[in-house]
């Protein structure tokens, strides 16, 4: 009996040692369960793609435990978490959203995510599809976006380049709101994979029935472009009262475009951008 138990532990240790951290000194937890809400994760290889799965991490034992689930994805996939640790009361199943992303240029095909907890292991298949191509000339689509701050989770920077210009969707991750109330300037930036000719920037600030631009939208901002490694202002908007403002300027070859927000019509509160579009 004793030798069988030992053999089992050794086998489990050997199985885990190749990917997860070494567990040589630790007894293996039992009674844990691992599952996912989908049989396969579909991944589109662009920044900001919202995709992934819900990890279900359970404890079927009779006593509460603190447990760890280690997640690993095949290169070049990235996971929002590679470790989920939690208190798990008896009979409880924790549900955790795991985002799965792949950089542009990832070869379409089959990949896998492996998850381990105690003596349990789950392999979740991943299908990487083709990257979408923008056909409107909007250079801000499908490129990395960053911001000075983001009011997470409902107002991410990604919401400002998701193709959704509709202010009525405000608050549902389709627009960007900074998280530093009362502090200006803030900024929102798209970074191109290669230098692009840029001559026009369309900015859709918040302008819904409930939150009209004249009361809640951006009032003042600068359009700044990164040209040969240095930032230069290419357009200024002052006293804006409308939902859409288009800035045209002498075209520059830019590696990134940044909106430097200076004031809101609401006063010292937030910067709000529903959509940012950049054209040649």
């Amino acid at each position: 009996m004793r030798s069988r138990t030992l053999a089992l532990i050794v086998a489990v240790v050997a199985g885990i040692a190749t990917t997860g951290p070494a567990v040589a000194d630790r007894s293996v937890q039992r009674g844990l369960t691992l599952s996912a809400d989908v049989a396969q994760v579909a991944v589109t290889p662009v920044p900001c793609a919202k995709q992934g799965f819900e990890l279900r991490f359970g404890n079927t034992g009779k006593t509460a435990v603190y447990a760890d689930a280690f997640l690993e994805a095949a290169t070049p996939l990235t996971l929002s978490r590679s470790l989920v640790s939690s208190y798990l009361p008896p009979g409880y199943t924790l549900k955790v959203r795991i985002d799965v992303n792949a950089p542009r240029g990832t070869a379409p095909g089959k990949y896998a995510i492996s998850i381990k907890a105690g003596d349990q292991k789950l392999t979740l298949p991943v299908e990487v599809g083709e990257a979408p191509v923008d056909t409107t000339g909007n250079l801000a689509r499908f490129v990395p976006v960053t911001a000075s701050t983001e009011h997470l989770p409902n107002y991410p920077a990604c919401g400002a380049v998701d193709g959704d210009r509709d202010s009525e969707h405000w608050g549902k991750t389709t627009g960007w709101n900074d998280s530093t109330r009362g502090n200006f300037p803030d900024w929102l930036q798209v970074t191109f994979d290669q230098p692009q000719t840029v001559g026009r920037v369309d900015l859709y600030t918040l302008n819904s029935k409930q939150y009209p631009a004249a009361k809640y939208g951006l009032k003042d901002w600068d359009v700044v472009a990164q040209v040969n490694g240095s930032w230069q202002a290419v357009a200024q908007v002052r006293g804006n009262m409308s939902g859409l403002t288009s800035s045209t300027f002498t075209p520059v070859t830019a590696t990134a475009v940044r909106i430097l927000t200076l004031a809101s019509n609401e006063g010292l509160t937030y910067s709000r951008v529903v959509e940012l579009e950049v054209y040649g």
């Binding site: 929002s80 989920v84 640790s85 939690s86 911001a147 701050t149 997470l152 502090n183």
Partner: peptide, 23 residues
């Protein structure tokens, strides 16, 4: 960018989600 700190070394991506689990 780390909020008002506006750091030059990006805060790693695992910090984007709100804290909920022990890890």
């Amino acid at each position: 960018a780390g909020g008002l700190r506006n750091v030059t070394t990006p805060v790693p991506s695992q910090f984007r989600t709100e804290a909920d689990t022990l890890d």
